[in-house]
Design a protein around this nucleic acid. Sequence first.
DNA 1: ATTGCTATGTATAACAA
DNA 2: TTTGTTATACATAGCAA
Lengths: 238, 238
Amino acid sequence: MARKKVKLAWIANDSARRATFKKRKKGLMKKVSELSTLCGVEACAIIYGSEDPQPDVWPSTSSEAHRVLTRFKSMPEMEQSKKMMNQEGLLRQGISKVKEQLKKQQRENRKFVLTQLMYQTLDGKGLPDVGTEVLHELEDVIEEKMKAIEERIESLRGATSVPSQLINGTGVEMEMEAVQRQKWFMEAVLNNPPQEQHHHQHQHQHQPTVYYGNGGDDQFANGMPYGDHGSWPNHFYT
Amino acid sequence: MARKKVKLAWIANDSARRATFKKRKKGLMKKVSELSTLCGVEACAIIYGSEDPQPDVWPSTSSEAHRVLTRFKSMPEMEQSKKMMNQEGLLRQGISKVKEQLKKQQRENRKFVLTQLMYQTLDGKGLPDVGTEVLHELEDVIEEKMKAIEERIESLRGATSVPSQLINGTGVEMEMEAVQRQKWFMEAVLNNPPQEQHHHQHQHQHQPTVYYGNGGDDQFANGMPYGDHGSWPNHFYT
DNA sequence: ATTGCTATGTATAACAA
DNA sequence: TTTGTTATACATAGCAA
C-alpha cells in the first residue's frame, strides 16, 4: 500500500529503486503514448536505465523517434531553450503552488475569523473595535450565511414538503432572525461616521506571534488578519 | 469530475483537446522529472504542441537535453550549465521560506482554533466530538492561558500595589475560575476511555478544499486542521 | 527478482465561475 | 479562455507469496 508520500529524492535502496524505475518507466511511456494519441502531437521520450546502455524509447519505431529528434536538433538553441521545462521551471511551479496554498489558507482563515466574530456578536459579546473594511467583510460573511440559511429553509420546504409551521423548532428561523438583526446592526454601525482609530501600539504585548506583511502580492507576503494593522480577534477575550 | 473512462483516441473537440494537452503535458513533465530524480537516470521528453513550432522539452537546459539526445545518437557530450546551480539554490531557498511561513501560520491557526474551541466550551456550547490528541492540545492552550492570567494578577498585585480586594471586578478571577473548571472538565474527559473515532469518509463532502499531502515534512504538504483528517472547526456551527 | 494485491497518493475529466 | 473545484479514474509504494 502506498502509505507514504514518497520523498522526491534519489532512492538509496537498490532493489527498491529498480522496482520503482521499472514501474514508473512503464507508466511514463503509457502517458507519452496517450498524450500523443489523444492530442495528435508528436512526442518522444528517451530513458536510460542506470546500467543498461540501451535506452527505452518512445515511440517504439526509431524512425519516428528520429523524426522528432531531428526536428528538435535542427532548430537554433536559443529558440529551443525558450519553452524548456527545466528544473527551474518546476521549482518555480513549486513556489507558486506553496504560495497559492498560503493565500488560500489565508482566505479561509479570514473567513473563519469573521464567522467567529459574527457568532460572538450574536452571543451578545459586542462587536470589537474593528475598522470599516472589516465590517464590510463581515457583512459579506453574514450575507453568505443568510443565503445558506434561506437555502436550507427552501430545501426543507420544497424537498420534503414540510408544512412551514414545522420549520419552527429547527432553530433555523431564529438563527435567521438573529443574523438579520446583526445585519441591521452592522448597517447602523456603518452609517455612523467611524471614529478615528488609534493604534495602541504597545498595549498588545501579550498577544501571541504577530507577523508583518501586508497581504499585497509581494514575494512572500502574509495576509493574516492578525497583524498590527488594526484591532483584531485577539481582543475578544483575555 | 472524471466520470468517463476516456477513450484512447484523438479528441475532436478543439478546446477540450487543448485543455487536455495542457494538463497532460504538465503532468508528463512532472513524471519525467520525478523518474529522473528518484532513480537517478538520464531522461528526456520532447513534445510538440499542435500549433506551436516550439516543443516543450525536459530536461532543463538545452545542454542537458542535447546530452541525452546526443548520447542517443552516439555523439560527444556537451557541458553542463553552472549558473543553474545558483538559480536552483535560490529557488529552493524561496520554497523553504514560503513553506516555513505556511507552517508557522498553520501552527498559529491551530492555536487560534483551539482557543476558540476553549471559549466555546466555556460558554457552555459543549465540546465537539474531537479526538484525544486534540484534547491534549487544548490542555496545553488552557495551561498557557492560565499562566497568562496568573501573570496578569501578579502584575496587578505587584507593580501597582493594588489591594487584592480591588482585583475583584476586573473579571480576571472569574475567568480564571472558568478556565480552571474547564481544565477539570478536560481531565474528566481525558480520563474517560475515548470512543473509537470513525472517519466518516463520505460525510464531509461539503468541507472546503482538501489538499493532498499528509502534513509531514514533504515537499508541498499542507497540515491545516481543516482537512479530511478528523472532526474540526467547521462542525461548530451551521 | 517477479507477480499480484490494495491502500493511498496523484492526475485529470467534467463542470462551474 | 483561465482558474478553481470535485468526483473519478489511474498510478504506484509497500507487502506478501
